Amino acid sequence: MSSKPRMSPVAPPYDEETGRLLAKWMPPGSDMEPLLLFRLLALHRGLTGRLHPMASGLLNHGVLPPRDREIVISRITARAGAEYEWGVHAVVSGPAAGLERELLDAFVTQPADAAVFDAHTRLLVTAVDELHDQATVRAATWRELQVIYDDAQLVELLVLTGWYRTLSTVITSVALPLESWAARFPVTSLPS
């Protein structure tokens, strides 16, 4: 990632409309400064307002188990080289969903068939890798996924992967700086 961002996120003090928009992206009662990603998206207020329901729906109202959701997010952001997003999830959402740091690091450093992944995790990692590399899931992988997930969950898995791939594209394209408190990629990583 470039050391100099290509765009500057909105900065405080925020005008009233921007403040309301950013508050929607933060957990209720949070006194934390809005994430740089949210502040970057706020450069396009109309789009940001339309994106929020999608983001909230996937994170707060999804039908995938939280652990599975975070596996998908961690792998796609790692594969896409979005250290910013991977690092935020590695500190906040991943551990909350029961993912240990060793596993989170493995999403960055290990191939899908690595011994560190149990069979369930390996299947999700394989599906994400196929979506990243070919924009589709191979028939054999799809059949395995159908054994575990219903149709609604499968649609969500595809959209979740695509959503975080989209965010990764924004993050890497603008060289968004990392949050000071977020995790960093392990030194060794897979090619994106």
Rank of each mutant, 00 (worst) to 15 (best):
A80H: 12
L104E: 05
H61W: 02
A80I: 00
T136K: 14
L58H: 06
E179V: 02
A135D: 13
T141Q: 01
P65F: 03
A115L: 04
H132Y: 15
L40P: 05
I71V: 15
V174R: 12
L158H: 13
D151G: 03
F38N: 14
R122T: 02
T161A: 15
A96S: 13
A82G: 06
M54L: 15
N60W: 02
V137A: 04
G49L: 10
T136V: 07
G87N: 07
G57D: 12
R45S: 13
T166K: 00
T172V: 15
L123W: 03
R101I: 02
L99P: 05
A96L: 13
A112Q: 14
I76R: 06
H52F: 15
E85D: 13
I148H: 13
A114L: 09
T109G: 14
S173L: 07
Q146F: 01
G87Y: 09
P177F: 05
V108F: 00
T166W: 15
L131G: 09
D133F: 02
F38P: 02
V88R: 09
Q110M: 13
L176M: 11
T121K: 08
P65S: 08
R45P: 01
G49R: 12
G162W: 10
S168T: 02
G98P: 09
W86C: 01
E179I: 03
R138S: 14
V174A: 11
Q146K: 15
M54K: 00
A55H: 12
D105T: 03
R39E: 01
T141H: 05
T169N: 05
H132N: 14
G46C: 03
R75D: 09
A82L: 06
V91W: 04
A127R: 09
D105K: 07
F107W: 00
T172Y: 08
G87W: 07
F117N: 10
E83T: 03
W86H: 10
W142Y: 10
R39M: 04
P111H: 06
T77S: 14
F38R: 05
A114I: 10
L160C: 07
M54W: 10
R75F: 04
D105M: 02
G94P: 03
A97I: 03
E179K: 06
W181T: 11
R45H: 14
E85G: 08
R50P: 00
E83W: 09
T141K: 04
A115N: 12
V92Y: 02
I171P: 06
L124D: 09
V147D: 12
V125M: 00
R79N: 07
M54V: 15
D133C: 11
L154H: 08
V170H: 04
V174T: 15
A82C: 08
T166G: 14
P65C: 00
G162N: 11
G62W: 01
H120D: 14
P95H: 07
L123H: 00
R50E: 14
L167W: 11
S173D: 01
P66M: 08
E102R: 05
L47V: 15
G98M: 01
R122E: 10
R138A: 15
R143S: 14
L99T: 05
L154D: 02
A152C: 05
A82P: 11
T169R: 07
V174Q: 10
L160K: 04
V92M: 12
